[in-house]
Design a protein around this nucleic acid. Structure first.
Length: 400
RNA sequence: GCAGGGGUGGUCGAGUGGUUAAUGGCACCGGGCUGUAAACCCGGCGGGUUCACACCCUACGUAGGUUCGAAUCCUACCCCCUGCA
């Protein structure tokens, strides 16, 4: 008798439950085939198969305890290429990370690569930033690559309109994104049936297949945002992302969109705000009901000399820290703050030592992840507004 | 001692009569960074006054000189490098 029962075949790729809610803010559990993630969650960005300047052991360590990280379709597709990653057993095995992976679709590169790309209905032609060769990425290609990568959460291939896009321009872009979303869904489902997913793993009572998230676009136009959301909900996804923010628009526009859109998104599915943001941004978005975040700020800024702290941002390059024996953040318990002074970190940075990047990245990630721990705890205990208020008040302290 | 080369702003190094406060690099100082073309990018960098436009000082080893004008030419001196004694 066939082993696959009806209940097996309808087992979902993901499960999401909300354990606590305070106003719009939610604390929940996202169960994936590779692990359980407490939300709201911050996901460090690991574009090219590495969260830059930090080892996987440290990401897994109690000091950071990152449950999920990102990878990028566009970058990994260009280098090392799909064949290599397939041959090495998928992205998890290739990079040596057994926890949850989410891959971005390459859609963001459609926007960020500017002159190096050309968009058509079919997809996007890219001039590779690696070797200048012409490459073509489409919803189908993106889904194929992400299946080969075997990430646990796959993002639909979208097009991000510029932050200040007009209504007409945005409407076109949202239309294209919707058609690409549908094609992503179709290609994704076919690939799952074909077994193309290199990360397939049955666990936690789930189907074992990848999950697919749709992306809402629409720039700063609330009506188009809503229409984009409706179209994605109609197509059906395992989670919904808000894309196209923090791409040059006013911050007030960003929060108008989040505040309006997030509460309208399906309540029983994870809501993911892509590419955001600063610690303050995260708290505000959580207050609007967002569950997942990713951002390059902690890692990139770590490499460029900026440390985040509970007392505000701190530029480690500044001469004022030359002989300062305090840690970056006096109320941080991360390994870097327990061991090293601002004076030493500044010295490392000015000397061009790679350890500066490593230590600042570690601290920044610790700060972001720890902040989210505090957020989750405060939502569960019903103290989120207080947590947020106190957190925000302390951020001014460095502005001496 | 003789011959040759050379002494430029924190540093290395361009510049050999006319927008030269003096190209560049580095160092230094400051800023930026939001689904990573990013261990990157941008700005400042002799001193003083000014919100600013602007103005005034001081500067190319030292001291003189030539010239309308000198980092650039001449003289003397000091110092460094190379070769020969």
């Amino acid at each position: 008798m066939a082993h696959v029962t009806k209940s097996d075949s309808v087992a979902p790729p993901l499960r999401f439950s909300i354990d606590a809610q305070q106003d719009e803010a939610r604390a929940g559990l996202l169960t994936t085939r590779r692990g359980v993630i407490e939300t709201p969650v911050f996901m460090p960005v690991g574009t090219a198969g590495t969260v830059k300047a930090i080892r996987f052991e440290e990401l897994e360590s109690p000091d950071l305890d990152a449950r999920i990280i990102l990878g990028n379709t566009y970058h990994l597709w260009l280098r090392p290429g799909v064949e290599t990653i397939k041959a090495c057993g998928g992205l998890h095995r290739f990079i040596g990370w057994n926890r949850v992976l989410l891959t971005d679709s390459g859609g963001f590169q459609v926007w960020s690569l500017g002159d190096l790309r050309k968009i058509s209905e079919e997809g996007t032609a890219f001039r590779s930033h690696v070797d200048g060769s012409l490459q073509f990425l489409s919803p189908e290609v993106s889904m194929e690559v992400q299946a080969a990568l075997g990430s646990d959460i796959v993002m639909a291939f979208d097009e991000c309109a510029p932050g200040d896009a007009s209504h007409e321009q945005t409407e076109r872009s949202v239309g294209l994104t919707a058609r690409w979303a549908k094609r992503s869904r179709v290609a994704f489902d076919r690939l799952q049936i074909e077994g193309a997913d290199k990360g397939y793993q049955v666990a936690n009572g789930l189907s074992g297949s990848q999950a697919l998230f749709g992306i809402v676009q629409g720039a700063g136009h609330l009506d188009l945002r809503k229409s984009s959301l409706d179209q994605n909900v109609a197509i059906g996804f395992d989670g919904h992302a808000i894309g196209g923010l923090s791409v040059g628009e006013e911050k007030s526009t960003m929060f108008d969109v989040i505040g309006d859109l997030a509460p309208q998104m399906p309540k029983d599915q994870p809501r993911y705000l892509m590419g955001v943001g600063t610690p303050e941004d995260l708290l505000e978005a959580v207050a609007c009901g967002v569950d997942m975040f990713d951002c390059v700020l902690p890692t990139r800024n770590g490499r460029t000399g900026q440390a985040f702290s509970s007392a505000g941002k701190l530029n480690i390059k500044n001469a004022r820290w030359a002989q300062d024996t305090r840690p970056i953040d006096e109320s941080c318990h991360c390994l870097v703050c327990r061991r090293h002074t601002r004076a030493y970190l500044r010295h490392l940075y000015l000397a061009g030592e790679m350890l500066a990047s490593i230590l600042l990245t570690h601290h920044n990630l610790a700060f972001f992840l720890d902040t989210m721990r505090g957020v989750r705890q405060s939502i569960r205990s019903g103290d989120f507004p207080k947590f947020r208020r106190e957190f925000t008040e302390r951020l001014g302290a460095n502005g001496e």
